[in-house]
């Protein structure tokens, strides 16, 4: 069981992913934007952060850049469905360069998610 922080501005995505990950007995905390996510990270320890990239009020790229300044950081999975002006692959490549441990292209299924989580947590 891992302690996971989910950051996504789409409330339905948060809900469905929470349902998935709770089935795998993970402990899930959610945040609806990067700013709230970072404020949670400043207070709590997490094993894994799964963050969306394009969000209002501090996006996933800012979350990743915040991690660059941290000494101890959890594992990170970045996920994106693209944006109005940027290609989905470009966004995810940028996340990889910012040391995201895994990137997922939305939409993805249950198996893909659980496999990615297992991979980064080396479960």
């Amino acid at each position: 069981m891992a302690k996971i922080l989910l950051i996504d501005d789409d409330e339905q995505v948060l809900k469905v992913m929470t349902s998935f990950l709770e089935r795998e007995h993970h402990q899930i905390t959610t945040a609806i934007n990067g700013r709230l996510g970072i404020s949670l990270l400043e207070k709590q320890q997490f094993d894994l952060v799964i963050t969306d990239v394009i969000m209002p009020d501090q996006d996933g790229i800012e979350v990743l850049m915040w991690f660059l300044k941290q000494v101890n950081r959890p594992k990170i999975i970045a996920m994106s469905g693209g944006s109005a002006s940027l290609d989905q692959n470009l966004l995810l490549n940028t996340c990889s360069k910012l040391h995201a441990d895994k990137v997922l292209s939305k939409p993805f299924d249950f198996a893909t998610l659980t496999s990615a989580v297992s991979e980064v947590l080396e479960i």
Binding site: D10, G81, G82, F110
Partner: peptide, 23 residues
């Protein structure tokens, strides 16, 4: 530009539909 924005929203909603269908 619009297609990019729409794709972003659609992908989120597809996440929900596919996810709930799986659930």
């Amino acid at each position: 530009q619009l297609a990019g924005g729409v794709a972003h929203d659609f992908n989120n909603k597809l996440m929900a539909i596919l996810g709930y269908a799986e659930l």
